[in-house]
Design a binder for these strands. Structure first.
Lengths: 255, 255
DNA sequence: AATTTTCATTTGTCAGACAATTAAACGTCT
DNA sequence: AGACGTTTAATTGTCTGACAAATGAAAATT
């Protein structure tokens, strides 16, 4: 692919050219790219420009670099674990930067999560159930901070999603589930509401253990409704003090 | 945040520091970062190193840069449209680089897509229905290439997903739906199989028009089963010639 | 007052240099 | 010959300094 040397985004063009080569299969996983000096010559640019292009690709985990005699830039095998982090970062920022309402985010999360109910019920292992039971138990401990409660909630739901045994689903839902956490962190849970949530979690785990997909779906739906109600009451309390919708605009990750 | 000047990944550390500042809300959308020279002084590194860090952030659409007197790097409002592209790129590469089987990807796609059936049925507008009808009609035209058929298929399903009227769901599903396209492109559709698919699409559109969420779900399930069957037959045909599973390992985007 | 010119600031790019790392090639000793 | 240390070449990581291009603000001019 040719680049336009008069455009002031040479490194972006070069990054795109290499990215396209990876996507099209011209560059295979593990293959070594030409050295920075060679790339600079090929694209007729300087080495810093090439390096900026490579850093762009590195930020997307498309390549990794290695120093030394046999070093260079190599096409990286994109792993699900690597992609999780990016997916969560992007999802979180999308919610907070676009004034997505709690109800919209919550609706998306539970709608997507309910889609795994049947598969998870069929395939759940003892491990998944043990994790879910352990997290539910942790959530019932008094003295747990709201942040820790939310983190445990995320762990519970991730175990449920992973129980479906489909890495593609786990990846897609990681963003939806984890991106909700900063939003959930804005809610202070009363002891009573925690009790209700833990009870629902137990029902979900029970249904999953019984391999009752419809039951998992039903209880997830109930949890979705309850979460929305809870958020609504928080929102009403804020509205009475000051007119403001509960969005993620002011929500940020814990320091 | 401090950085370790002895580690050979200064630009990655600086990018992380700035990224964390954005995620935590220390840097707000639209806010201008210090100039490259100032950042270089703050982090005690050279300007090229700062630039590499900024390019990393630019690759994730976290910042945008502007030349000139009042220019600089600004925290970018991450838009859903911007994130779609990255999501699709990442999803596509994940499938092709991890030997994800057609059945796994297909299962994920339809499981997630079925989760919008109820919402889409409730909220679909005339626009969504018109798009779906138009795409179904296009798919019935003879002489359509396999690539064009698949592209139309994607457009049909995106309209269905968008009908749910939830941008978070649309974003999450963009990856799942579009990433399947290179895989679907490996299948040659017979006139008969195209006819079957178009028929199912019509049934889905009918159910959506009637706001029958359960019907949409049922027909999507049938389409999922049929697609799997179709892929299975392609796989069997290949296996008879040469032992190889049908994965996305050899699938790539059209040139 | 409006318009043009100048200027300072900032990013984009380049050239050259050196340090750090790494593996291969080479020599040396047993 | 083989094991072990040394040198060397290749490559990325970083720095310094420089200039071009764009851009808005300030200054000068009409």
């Amino acid at each position: 692919m040719k680049i336009d040397p008069n455009s002031p985004d040479l490194s972006a063009q070069i990054a795109k050219a290499i990215r396209d080569a990876i996507m099209s299969g011209d560059l295979l996983v593990g293959e070594r790219l030409p050295s920075e000096a060679e790339l600079a010559e090929q694209f007729d640019v300087s080495r810093p420009t090439v390096r900026e292009a490579l850093k762009r690709l590195g930020a997307q985990s498309l390549i990794r670099t290695q120093r030394g005699a046999t070093g260079g830039a190599f096409v990286n095998r994109l792993r699900f674990e690597d992609a999780y982090g990016q997916q969560i970062t992007t999802s979180t920022l999308l919610l907070s930067m676009n004034d997505v309402s709690f109800s919209t985010a919550c609706e998306a999360r539970y709608a997507l999560e309910r889609s795994v109910a049947e598969l998870a019920a069929q395939r759940r292992t003892a491990d998944h159930l043990a994790t879910m039971r352990a997290e539910a138990h942790r959530q019932s401990q008094p003295g747990l901070t709201d942040e820790a409660f939310c983190a445990s909630d995320v762990a519970f739901h991730r175990a449920l999603v992973d129980a479906a045994g489909n890495p593609v689903i786990s990846y897609q839902l990681a963003g939806a589930v984890e991106a909700m956490q900063p939003l959930m962190n804005m809610i202070t849970f009363s002891a009573r509401s925690r009790e209700t949530i833990v009870g629902m979690h137990s029902q979900i785990a029970d249904a999953l253990q019984a391999q009752d997909g419809a039951g998992v779906d039903t209880h997830l739906g109930a949890l979705a409704d309850y979460t929305l109600t809870l958020a609504q009451s928080v929102m009403d309390a804020r509205d009475s003090a000051k007119a403001s919708n509960l969005t993620l605009a002011g929500a940020h990750v814990a320091p």
